[in-house]
Design a protein around this nucleic acid. Structure first.
Lengths: 209, 209, 209, 209
DNA sequence: TATGAATGAGCCTTCATTCAT
DNA sequence: CATGAATGAAGGCTCATTCAT
């Protein structure tokens, strides 16, 4: 987590600085998600943060640096939660359901950031900080793949193509950033369960015994 | 499909004009998909089309009008195909698989346009032409919902929430615009089948008989 | 001589373009010399050229690129004249006087550019184009040094330190950019002769024979 | 030398204040000489002085006021030395050589300040404080002119144009700010002598007796 | 049809300076 | 004395669009 301009400050002022910066980053994520990165002007951010133009630049290095900060913000907590779940001694089904809850909750909580992440990552593709984000993304996907493949080995899952199976699961959940209602945040667990059920059992009615 | 500036011309020249315009729209879709709408300059389009600045404006009214044209390009053929499938006298499972093929093929064929659509639709939300696109989108979603609900009524499908079920199906397939490689070996029909299978039966292994 | 944006144009329009660009460069030199590079705003250039902001950028790549263009403008003609003089079969005194005329005339004609050259070169020191300018400067100084040293070998000049002697000559003439009245351009030859006389014979009165 | 904010303080604190201020002015001269006045930001000065932004403003009123202070710094000692030399009862040649030493030494000692003076004086041209600096400059030039003209009257110097002769002398020496290396082996006194010799006798070899 | 010069609003960013603490 | 957050005017530059030729 790179911290801008934080040298030569007292602990107290540094703390205030970091907090304010975090606010700025979150506000920016909201505005970017609403209007898109390029359609958002610095004046929009100025209006949204309540700062003035110069004051805003006290906390950031530029518009693009904000994109990086936004990504870090939502990908870190998700990844550490996924890691923790993967280490649990639970059946693959349970783990998959738990990660679905984690991802769904992340999208619900950081929908703005996720939107930015999915739409604008090309912009920062060349940025050195992007490598870390890309790595985090890969790690998350690998955790899911591992759960799926362990399930297959143990005989509880059946599928032929790991990657396509991962992408089906990922698409089902990730796509929710396009329609999820941020006010209905409490529904996230319900959706996670609903999608997990479909992913596990499908929609086809069980044949009569 | 509104045709710009095509009056008062000989049939021959009008034909050439329309063809050129279509090329411009498709080229724009490609460039927009790669860089994003706002990041694409008219000079980028000039370079990509091989036209000159002034020449480009003979075929379009402006950058934003291109967005509309791009949407029309991929949504019309998809919708008519979906309508045709819905009218067939086939079981819901078959219809669902067919529409998955149609949507998947559409994404594969018009991946640039779909990318632009999913990323930039907010930009034209207020445009009068957006209403038609929105209507088409709703109609497509309704067709899927109808198939699902008919399946439930007939007892082949089992689910509790039509909308969430639709969104699971839609997300699984639509999300492919993020990873689908049109040149790749994994063909669209195969993915459509694979995803349909998961959607119908899930990944859970069948219990031993 | 790098020519910006000159591809894909007809010979006619390219000619007009180059001419207009030259006017822009010369106007910029004038304004830079009056106010200094950094104190000159793009709006100043806009006002001085009669173009609008965007129109100005049709001819240039940026403020800094103008500095390079300005340097090229005045150093090229001077250098070729100096080369031509150096190749003549004339005594060193005559050559030195001729080069003094050339340099003095150059300063009188391009006083603005010379001012910019002497004051602002640090700004473009890191620019790749600067190497060429630096090389040209070195070559000019070498031509003077060669003339001086040939004179010493032939016995018409007497001095101990080539470099200091060069710098004395150079300073005497170059410094004129600080005081030369551009309206009195016709005086340049007179000053060149006057300074050459001092440099050759000094101001000390000849001892009575 | 106007002293800012030095009232109402104990002698001790006032002394410390003045010393600190002088350091700030000299540091500013160095940075201005390296990067130019306009290219130097207050943050550059903050970094160079080791103070903080607010702290810097305890010692100065603003960036431009620094320019004035820099000029005063090097012109005052030079002028008083020149005055003292002019009052001596010595032949013009000796006086001229002494003033050359003084000016050359001044440039060597205050090269940064001189650079700033020669490059940026236009910026403060309109400032009321500039009148005093201009007056000092004129007085210095007048002292040289007087020496030259007295030499001509006494028959030791021979020239036709006082002003051009002054400018030749001034240019030869002043221009050294462009190339003089204060750390270098070529010492200021040596250069002063060398240039004085050229100015007095020229570089032409004495005709064989 | 086609060209490319020109427009001018608007964008991102910088920076000298102030001021509450 | 000193800090550093905040200001807001201004700077360099971009870009969609127009229009005379």
């Amino acid at each position: 987590m790179p911290e801008k301009k934080a040298e030569g400050k007292t602990a107290r002022s540094r703390e205030r600085y970091e907090q304010r910066r975090q606010e700025v980053v979150d506000t920016a994520a909201k505005v970017f998600a609403e209007r898109g990165f390029h359609a958002t002007t610095v004046d929009d951010l100025v209006a949204a943060t309540g700062l003035q133009r110069g004051g805003l630049y006290h906390y950031i290095d530029g518009k693009m640096e904000l994109l990086i900060a936004i990504h870090e913000r939502f990908i870190e907590p998700l990844l550490s939660e996924a890691r923790e779940i993967a280490e649990r001694d639970e059946p693959p089904e349970t783990q998959l359901r738990s990660v679905a809850h984690a991802l769904m909750g992340d999208i619900a909580s950081y929908r703005d950031q996720v939107t930015v992440f999915l739409h604008e990552w090309r912009i920062i593709e060349s940025d050195p900080a992007w490598k870390a984000i890309r790595k985090a993304r890969k790690e998350f996907e690998q955790i899911i793949t591992d759960i799926l493949e362990r399930g297959r080995e143990e005989g509880t899952f059946a599928f032929t193509d790991s990657r396509l199976t991962l992408l089906a699961w990922l698409g089902m959940i990730n796509y929710s950033y396009q329609w999820f209602d941020p006010e209905g945040r409490t529904q996230a667990p319900h959706v996670a369960d609903y999608f997990t059920d479909i992913f596990l059992s499908g929609v086809r009615a069980a044949p009569p015994a």
